[in-house]
Amino acid sequence: MKLEDLGWNDFFQRQFEAARPGLVPARITAEYAGCYEVGLARGEALASVSGRFRHTAATTGEMPVVGDWVLLSDKPGAEKLPIQAVLKRKSKISRKTTDKEETEQPVAANADTVFIVQGLDANYNPRRLERFITAAWESGAAPVVILNKADLCPEAAKRAEETSLLTPGVPVIILDSVSLRGYEQLEPFLAKGRTIAFIGSSGVGKSTIINNLGAKKQKTSAVRESDSKGTHTTSTRRLLRLAGGSLLIDTPGMKEFEAWEAPDGFKETFCEIEDLSLKCRFTNCGHETEPGCAVRSALDLGILTQARYANYLKMKKEAAHQKARASLTEQLKRKAGAKKLSRAIKNFFKDS
């Protein structure tokens, strides 16, 4: 297997040449509990992070994820090859975990394009789409919106127009996965060596699309007619290869999605509101009760919809909460580190 078949290029080659000798590059192709599947020049293997790497990784965001290029020790006969480092990423899609810890959960790395899939049935949700778009812009990859299941929506073209207004500058593609109408519009994004990540909620048809593109068959299941919600037919993140040489990262459907620290993505997603905010009387305007608020004026004039405005405020507050929590966590880490150092100094002089 050639590394180029897995997306290797000069960006990663330069980092490899600067790394310490004795390590070999590999790409994470699947993620399991406690280990990874990797592709390297000699084929496929299982790998796990080394103790040293786990100890030095400052956050969960630094841990390997599907799509990452890593450096490992290729020990003959080893059951799992130890991962010693993760090469700098070209892009990283992350979300906030849904547990009480509220930490970063990387979803995929080194994607060139993010296919954000929504179903044109009861699954279609503009507010959820804004969340996915924000994460995609922040990741460093280029977002593309796919409106799947056009066969179930007589007003598919109208939905596409509405979506284009919500996502300025982002391609919007309508797919009928039964007749395969619209699939030709995906071809420009599927060039050899390019990596595409699929994200979306359960039941939108990601696995069906991937199957139709010619990847290894993925499990699919029907959705409930009552609410168009599906089950998690993809249970693990995987990197799949297409016959034409492009690579796909399939991810499980996500019921909840909150982008992780996405100031740039937020500005791109809500660019018209961000532009309006520059005209507010106060530079720190919260766009709620302050006088001279240009955003509120646009809302009153009907230029801005109530639903988009409400989602903008909600996501802005979530981002502020994340930032405050991250700052507090960093302060606590520094304090704990200072205490540890102080104890070490005391013990040193005590024993000397």
Rank of each mutant, 00 (worst) to 15 (best):
A47S: 03
C285V: 10
V204Y: 13
S277R: 14
G205S: 06
S277F: 15
V295P: 15
K100D: 08
A136P: 15
C280Q: 12
N347I: 08
E44N: 04
A336K: 14
R238F: 00
R181G: 10
R325A: 03
S179N: 05
K2T: 06
R42E: 01
V144W: 12
N148T: 03
V49Y: 08
A78H: 13
E104L: 02
D227M: 05
G119K: 12
E256S: 09
H55P: 00
T251F: 06
A319T: 04
T251A: 06
L248K: 07
K314A: 03
V170R: 12
A298G: 09
S228I: 00
G337F: 11
G203S: 07
V70Y: 12
Q185A: 07
V49W: 09
V117M: 06
E31P: 15
F132P: 15
G182N: 13
L46V: 06
A85E: 10
G214F: 05
Q185F: 15
A150Q: 09
I174P: 15
H321D: 01
N123L: 04
E161Y: 13
K158P: 00
Q331Y: 14
P154S: 07
E318K: 11
T329C: 04
V49L: 05
E274N: 14
F189M: 03
A108N: 07
R343V: 10
M63K: 13
K192D: 09
V295L: 01
V65A: 02
R296G: 03
K316L: 02
Q13H: 10
A141T: 14
E104N: 09
R281Y: 12
W137G: 00
L186C: 11
D74T: 13
T195R: 11
T283R: 13
A57N: 09
F198Y: 12
N284A: 08
S297P: 15
G265Q: 11
V295M: 04
G292R: 10
V144C: 11
L313T: 08
I273T: 14
V66D: 06
T231I: 06
L6V: 11
G67A: 02
V114I: 09
V295W: 13
P263L: 06
T60I: 00
A30S: 07
D99T: 13
C35A: 01
